[in-house]
Computed example of a mutant assay.
Amino acid sequence: MILSRRTKRSTDWAEYKSVQGQVRQTIRTEHQKHIAKILNSSSNLNGNKPFWHYIKSRKKDQTGISSLQTTDGVATTPAEKAEVLNNTFKSVFTTEDLSSVPALPESTYPPLPEISITEHGVFTLLSQIDPHEACGPDNIPAKILHELAQELTPMITHLFKQSLDTSKLPTEWKSAYVTPVQSQLLLPDIGYLSGKCHVWPTIMEPA
């Protein structure tokens, strides 16, 4: 285009328009191939994740969490909404009075058998993980846990055995994602929001 403008020759301009048309046609063709590949992937073992990822990329509205109605008014800014959600989630927890805990009577049930964590059990659970699931708080892709189950089994087994032997949980295992779910209201009240969390399942097998 720069050359055609500089020379102002009709032949150069015609050549530029011809190349421009070819490029546009190539882009359209490759885009159609890309869409066809996404549609085909939704019908095979890869799942429909690429399809919905494409749909999401074409959306124009990225509003996130809408304004929240509270007893004090409407929370509109990100800081206000975060504070409202935090206070709501805190309010559902109960602070127990540990100074007057009653003594439990002797149990009438038989004691639990000794818990044994085996590599076979760990491998079985790792191989059953859906590789298309989102990452948890540990940011480890589910696909890695699924495809490298055999290689990861000894290390994960050791971690769980160490946790069981010491009666302690790593801090990372206590974290979780909390996602507010918006109801079908134009201006949702904070009381109508619920949360969900994803935690790593305990891998244990009775002896």
Rank of each mutant, 00 (worst) to 15 (best):
T124L: 10
T7M: 14
P180Y: 10
T171P: 13
I38D: 01
P137S: 15
H158W: 15
S127D: 01
I156C: 06
M155G: 11
L145M: 06
F123S: 15
G21S: 05
N87E: 13
R9T: 05
L39Q: 14
L68Q: 07
P78T: 07
L112N: 08
P137V: 03
G136H: 01
A82Q: 09
L185V: 10
A134G: 14
E205R: 10
Y54R: 02
G64A: 06
P110I: 00
D189P: 13
M204V: 15
S163D: 09
E147P: 02
T26C: 11
S167I: 01
A134I: 07
V19E: 06
W200R: 15
P50F: 04
R6W: 11
Q162K: 10
S175F: 00
L68S: 05
L193F: 13
T157N: 05
E172P: 00
H53G: 03
Y16T: 03
A82N: 11
R58G: 02
S183K: 15
A75R: 10
F160Q: 00
V92T: 10
T88W: 11
G136V: 00
D130T: 02
Q22R: 15
I144L: 08
P170K: 14
P188S: 03
K56M: 02
H146S: 07
T153Q: 02
Y177Q: 12
Q62D: 10
T124K: 15
S66M: 05
I115Q: 00
T118Y: 03
P50M: 06
L164N: 09
S163W: 12
T157P: 10
E147N: 11
T11H: 08
A103E: 06
T88E: 13
